[in-house]
Nucleic acid binder design. Structure first.
Lengths: 300, 300
DNA sequence: TGGATTGCATTAAATTATTAAATACCATGA
DNA sequence: TCATGGTATTTAATAATTTAATGCAATCCA
């Protein structure tokens, strides 16, 4: 029960590795040194030394501690299979909402989500608490959480807000220094867009990912924690709702591809006016798609 | 240990009140009905009925449950003194940062904060997780949290962004319907500003609160979850840094009061151009104050 | 017979308790 | 005297526990 001792286990194995690089009889460094070496506190180092001493790998008596024998495979301590769960939790959570078309108002069960995503409940709670700051989820009156949808009015405002952020980003992109990674990125995106355009008949559903990549690239020139976080959620919401509206998907996506290309052209030409105009046009399309997807979803 | 039974206690007392309104012998309603009446689940209702039965207030046998006697004061169950902690946690936390001039990079101890603010540790953790979405706090590599500061570049961007949001808000305020609470609020704020202006010699440090109230009022016309949350943090950060710079505080605050009054005038006159110009002027002052406060703080 | 109600079991969420790890402080010895 | 080790205290992570909610089958009475 209680806290995991992964830290200790990892440090222990690392110390074992350290021992292996020295011959028997070698004097071990000070606890503080080992602590820095392994990146853990002295408390953990001492626990490790204790075990090393018990197993007879070292002799330990106060400051006197020297290597007795080379460690063998059997001395190693087992690690719990690395749960990289928290890493991509956001990605996976948003993806889940998208993929299963989770409707607004759905109660979110901490226990169930934690099971499915294989993370601890408290981690999921923290995660939801974070999302609630964006109004994406909210606490329910009698406890628990729910997914919040948004009304048409809100969708309009969100679109407008997105417009403001993205026009700013486009303007900054146009003025990015020549060695900024954005140029490389834009060149790649241009190719990807043209490829998809060529195979639009079959691969039109691939556009969603490309759209996300495109907007992320544009916004990457804005170095601002606040805006970056918001952009993540905004792009999620747009995607989320795009998914709902399957009507004319191919035609719509082809049109969007061309709008993207126009923006890329203008940015590469370093033409602010043309770039912001193109962006404005594209975002207007986006907005109406979002609104119509809301309508369709409400009817269904 | 474990979960609080406040819900049960409150429901129980409410049921007692209900019993008091009926004479002995009255048949009690169904569990479901009582559940709706008290706003808790049937599980809790049954626990309450159990106790009522034990104390001889009712006779309970399956569906047969009737009042035996009127409840007396002594039947009541004690409530834990209402911890409204979570309610104002944000306010109090931000206030603490402000008041004690907590510098960037300060490690935040969950345990200590939870003690000081008298909330449970897990609540504080959720709260910090929320703030981390705004980049205001962050996890430290070896666990725990820290307060993140921001660089001068970031302050500039934040100011610019604030400008965008607030100009939008001002423009919307000018077009607010006549029955919108903003008008009442603005009238009150005008009086408060003039009062403070009259007593500026002694009360100039009171401006900080007024400033917050003013900007909050302006932004209250924008009905958008995202922007609203954002504004909260922006206003916090501006306050936070205002506090650092004590130079010329009186003069600066008097100037700001007049700028505020100019904005109020223009909004009340429903003059968009004048209002946005006034706002732009005020926010320019704000920005330079923010930047100079950063400089002073860095030097100190 | 069927709709409402209860009894029971399952599941979830909130909160405490417990353990691992970090840190602070004192003691000691080269 | 300063680096190092010993010990105590404190903190953060997480499991365990309790309250509360919910779902389903059994049951009662019209």
């Amino acid at each position: 029960m209680a806290r995991r001792d992964t830290r200790y286990r990892e440090a222990y194995n690392r110390l074992l590795d350290f021992c292996a690089t020295h011959p028997a009889g070698t004097e071990m460094p000070a606890e503080t040194t080992l602590s820095e070496l392994t990146g853990v506190s002295r408390t953990v180092v001492r626990r490790c030394l204790s075990r090393l001493s018990e197993l007879g790998v070292i002799a330990w008596n106060g400051r006197e501690k020297h290597l007795l024998r080379s460690p063998v495979q059997d001395d190693r301590i087992a690690l719990p299979d690395s749960a990289d769960g928290r890493e991509h939790l956001e990605q996976r959570f948003l993806d889940w909402i998208l993929r299963f078309d989770v409707p607004a108002g759905t109660p979110l069960s901490i226990a169930e989500l934690a099971r499915n995503f294989e993370v601890a409940q408290h981690e999921l709670k923290e995660f939801l608490a974070g999302l609630s700051r964006f109004g994406l989820v909210a606490r329910r009156p009698k406890g628990g959480w729910m997914l919040r949808g948004f009304t048409k009015d809100f969708a309009v405002e969100l679109s407008d807000f997105r417009l403001v952020l993205e026009l700013d980003a486009v303007a900054k992109a146009v003025e990015a220094p020549v060695d900024h990674p954005i140029w490389q990125r834009l060149a790649e995106l241009r190719v990807a867009h043209m490829d998809l355009s060529a195979n639009i008949e079959t691969d039109f559903h691939e556009f969603s990912k490309l759209d996300e990549a495109f907007h992320e690239a544009i916004n990457s020139v804005v170095r601002n924690r606040f805006i970056a976080e918001f952009q993540k959620v905004i792009s999620l919401i747009f995607h989320y709702h795009y998914m709902w509206d399957k009507t004319h998907e191919k035609v719509r996506n082809l049109a969007a591809i061309n709008e993207h290309l126009a923006i890329i052209d203008a940015i590469e030409a370093r033409d602010v006016q043309r770039a912001t105009d193109a962006a404005r046009r594209h975002l207007r399309t986006s907005k109406s798609t979002l609104l119509s997807s809301l309508r369709h979803h409400d009817l269904g």
